[in-house]
Deep mutational scan, measured.
Amino acid sequence: MKVIFLKDVKGKGKKGEIKNVADGYARNFLFKQGLAIEATPANLKELE
């Protein structure tokens, strides 16, 4: 799953980066902790 990092995550990505991560990792950790959001077309447009 592609995500947009909202904060730096050690060993995974830095704020503003778009990366592929495991679905479970994204849903169970990154999204719940507010560290990333899903890289949907709408979210990508907001990032620009």
Rank of each mutant, 00 (worst) to 15 (best):
Leu30Asp: 01
Val21Thr: 03
Gly34Ala: 07
Val9Trp: 04
Met1Gly: 04
Val9Ser: 02
Gln33Arg: 14
Ala39Thr: 03
Lys12Arg: 10
Leu6Trp: 02
Lys14Tyr: 11
Ala39Pro: 02
Arg27Ile: 15
Asn28Gly: 09
Gly13Arg: 00
Asn43Ala: 10
Ala22Asn: 13
Glu46Arg: 10
Ile18Asp: 01
Leu6Val: 09
Gln33His: 15
Asn43Leu: 11
Ala39Asp: 02
Pro41Arg: 08
Gly11Ile: 02
Lys2His: 09
Arg27Val: 14
Lys15Leu: 09
Pro41Leu: 12
Lys32Val: 14
Phe29Met: 08
Ala22Gly: 10
Leu47Gln: 10
Phe31Lys: 03
Gly24Lys: 13
Ala42Gly: 11
Gln33Phe: 15
Asp23Thr: 15
Gly16Glu: 01
Pro41Gln: 11
Asp23His: 14
Gly11Val: 02
Ile37Ala: 06
Val3Glu: 01
Asp23Ser: 13
Leu30Phe: 04
Phe31Trp: 02
Thr40Asn: 08
Asn20Ile: 15
Glu38Leu: 10
Ala36Gln: 00
Pro41Ala: 13
Ala39Asn: 03
Ile4Val: 09
Ile4Arg: 04
Ile4Glu: 02
Met1Asp: 04
Leu30Lys: 01
Ile37Met: 12
Leu6Met: 07
Ala36Met: 00
Ala22Met: 10
Arg27Gly: 03
Gly16Tyr: 08
Ile18Val: 13
Val3Tyr: 00
Ala42Asp: 12
Glu46Tyr: 11
Glu17Thr: 06
Ile37Trp: 07
Lys32Gly: 08
Val21Glu: 03
Asn43Tyr: 09
Lys7Glu: 09
Val9Pro: 01
Lys45Ala: 14
Glu48Gln: 14
Leu35Ile: 06
Lys14His: 09
Gly13Ile: 05
Leu30Ser: 00
Ala42Glu: 14
Lys15Val: 09
Glu17Ala: 06
Ile4Met: 08
Lys45Glu: 11
Ile37Leu: 10
Glu46Thr: 12
Glu48Pro: 09
Phe31Arg: 01
Pro41Asp: 13
Thr40Ala: 04
Asp8Glu: 07
Asn43Trp: 05
Ala42His: 12
Tyr25Leu: 08
Lys12Trp: 15
Val3Ala: 02
Phe29Gly: 04
Glu38Gly: 03
Tyr25Thr: 06
Met1Lys: 05
Lys7Asn: 07
Lys19Met: 10
Gly16Ser: 04
Ile37Phe: 03
Thr40Leu: 06
Lys45Gly: 09
Phe5Thr: 01
Asn43Gln: 08
Asp8Leu: 04
Gly16Arg: 02
Lys12Pro: 01
Ile37Glu: 05
Ile4Ala: 03
Ala22Pro: 13
Val3Gly: 00
Gly13Met: 04
Asn43Arg: 07
Gly13Asp: 01
Asn20Ser: 14
Asp23Lys: 13
Leu47Glu: 06
Lys32Thr: 12
Lys15Asn: 03
Phe5Asn: 00
Lys7Leu: 10
Leu35Asn: 02
Glu48Met: 15
Glu17Ser: 06
Leu44Ile: 14
Val21Ala: 02
Leu30Tyr: 04
Tyr25Arg: 06
Ile18Pro: 00
Gln33Tyr: 15
Lys32Gln: 13
Met1Gln: 05
Gly13Asn: 02
Val21Arg: 00
Leu47Met: 11
Asn28Glu: 14
Gly34Pro: 00
Asn28Pro: 01
Lys12Tyr: 15
Lys15Trp: 03
Ile18Ser: 03
Lys14Asn: 09
Met1Ile: 15
Lys45Gln: 13
Ile37Asn: 02
Val3His: 01
Leu35Ser: 04
Gly16Thr: 02
Lys7Trp: 09
Glu48Trp: 10
Glu38Met: 10
Ile37Tyr: 04
Lys15Asp: 01
Lys14Phe: 13
Met1Asn: 04
Val9Met: 04
Glu38Trp: 07
Leu30Trp: 02
Lys12Ile: 15
Glu38Ser: 06
Pro41Lys: 10
Leu35Phe: 10
Ala42Tyr: 07
Gly11Lys: 05
Lys19Phe: 06
Gln33Asn: 15
